[in-house]
Amino acid sequence: MVENISRSIVRVQGLCKRVVSPEGELVLLDDLSLEIDAGEAVAIVGASGSGKSTLLGILAGLDVPSDGQVWLDGNDLFKLDEDGRATLRQSSVGFVFQSFQLLPNLTALENVMLPLELGGVENVESQASKMLARVGLAERLHHYPKQLSGGEQQRVAIARAFVVKPKILFADEPTGNLDSATGERVIELLFELNREQGATIVLVTHDEALARRCNRLFRLDAGRLVAVERSVAE
């Protein structure tokens, strides 16, 4: 364990998420605390409905907690307003989703250019095409998402996530929509880029094998953190 707070890129304290449903109040996350170090790869695992995706959403600042605090790269995430969190995401965070979330009207290249463009970066085309070449899609720059296979779409998504050189990458079931061989290659790529760029990876999955490739596992059950396991594969 690393003691130095400045080394942890994510720090969560007393996190609660409750929603009101027709059956009464539902507790999605219950008094959850954890820390993730910079450069570390962690997996959040658990059964369906255990609160994995909710936790990821809150860590990335896409959702707000009912209680508790989250520090992302030294920023108290929920002291920022929505636009402040967006700006933080723009500079420090990358995303990979289960359903890829590429914009259908944009070519592969344009999808990768998008976060740079939103950040006001100039001459983004060469950066984006280099990144696409890095993920093996140099021949596919001008294809639309619907013209790409699932694996290719996820590689575009990975290129889009890494093109901004994020400090932290959030991945939500990145292989969930892919067959196992393709999923394997996508994960390979994800870890390679992670090593190259020295980014932190936070991965939500229920694939135990995939989770074992990370440094640590956070196991959730009914919104509670029930175990933190150090991976042997390291």
Binding site: A60, L88, R89, Q90, Q101, L114, P115
Partner: peptide, 19 residues
């Protein structure tokens, strides 16, 4: 309707509401 997802993605990758 067709741009709802685009909006969400743009927000995810750092677009502000104003932007």
């Amino acid at each position: 309707r067709r741009h709802l997802d685009s909006c969400a993605v743009m927000r995810c990758v750092g677009g502000t509401q104003q932007q």
